[in-house]
Amino acid sequence: GYAVNTMAPPYQPSSVRPAEEGNAAWADPADPRVMPPQTYATIGDRLSAKGVDWAWYSGAWQYALDHRDTGAVPDFQYHHQPFNYFANFAPGTAARARHLRDAGVGDDPATNRLLADIDAGRLPAVTFYKPQGNLNMHAGYADVESGDRHVAAVIEHLQRSPQWANTVIVMTHDENGGWWDPVAPPAGDRWGPGSRVPALVIAPFAKKGYVDHTFYDTASILRFISRVHGLAPLDGVAARDRALTARGQTPPGDLTAALDLA
């Protein structure tokens, strides 16, 4: 089967409360808004199987666990936490404790643990970061100016970090930074592509002033990680590539065209 649009994660923090007298670390599994725990392999599973350290940092994660209402600030987005939908990262597992990390709140390394880890040079080889909701530039509940300031702060910390020489940043925007796209998407299937999502590739060896017109999708980031670390392709990415090839279309790229790897 499949799920469409916003489904709540099965584990806390979740927009659905625990069942009365149920497991306090779970969302109520009887609620139809709750996605059942998923069991297929994620990019995290692939990295772990290869012995590559990784982490998902989430802004205001612990705050959301401690507060039922996260308010306009930090406005935690429960459904933006992909690994919180998977049984391998259920509460109480060693994988959850190691890989799903609270980034804290705000732009200060004293309160934002991602920035503290950047400054200390202790980021894992593959690091994902989802800022707290009020900083993600989503039209309607977040503003672009606050998000821009936060993105600039994170990038500046990375450029000063001892890990910068070997770092590639791939930055995407939530909801395109707005609701509208003046260009029609290319032909695809019923799942997309949808409106374009801006992406910036920032690295010491990124092509300077280069606009890449390669066809990408959001799984291109996963393709890039898989290529760099020699991972087996994820089932869903491989299936999509096969389907496009069968229709005579070129599968999306893996971001390397934006980098000078000579």
Rank of each mutant, 00 (worst) to 15 (best):
E156R: 13
G178L: 09
S146K: 01
H213E: 14
L200M: 12
V170L: 05
P109W: 05
A142C: 08
R149T: 13
Q163H: 07
F215I: 14
T127H: 04
E156H: 12
G106Y: 03
A219G: 04
H157S: 13
A187M: 12
S146Q: 05
T127G: 09
G194S: 06
A199S: 03
Q159S: 13
V197P: 01
G147R: 00
A184K: 14
F205G: 08
G177M: 06
P124S: 11
V211L: 14
D181H: 04
A187I: 13
G192I: 12
A199L: 14
F128T: 01
D148Q: 10
V168L: 04
I221A: 03
D217P: 00
G178N: 04
R149D: 12
R122G: 09
V144H: 11
G140F: 15
T172D: 02
A165W: 10
N176C: 10
V211F: 13
R122M: 05
A142Q: 02
L114V: 01
P204N: 05
V144M: 14
Q159H: 10
V126C: 08
T127K: 03
A116E: 04
S146P: 10
G106S: 11
G177R: 00
Y129R: 00
V154H: 01
Q132N: 11
Y141P: 06
P131R: 00
I169K: 00
E175I: 07
Y141T: 12
I169A: 08
S220Y: 01
D117W: 03
W164F: 04
A203F: 02
V211I: 15
W164D: 01
L200V: 11
D117P: 11
K208Y: 11
P185T: 06
A219F: 07
L158V: 06
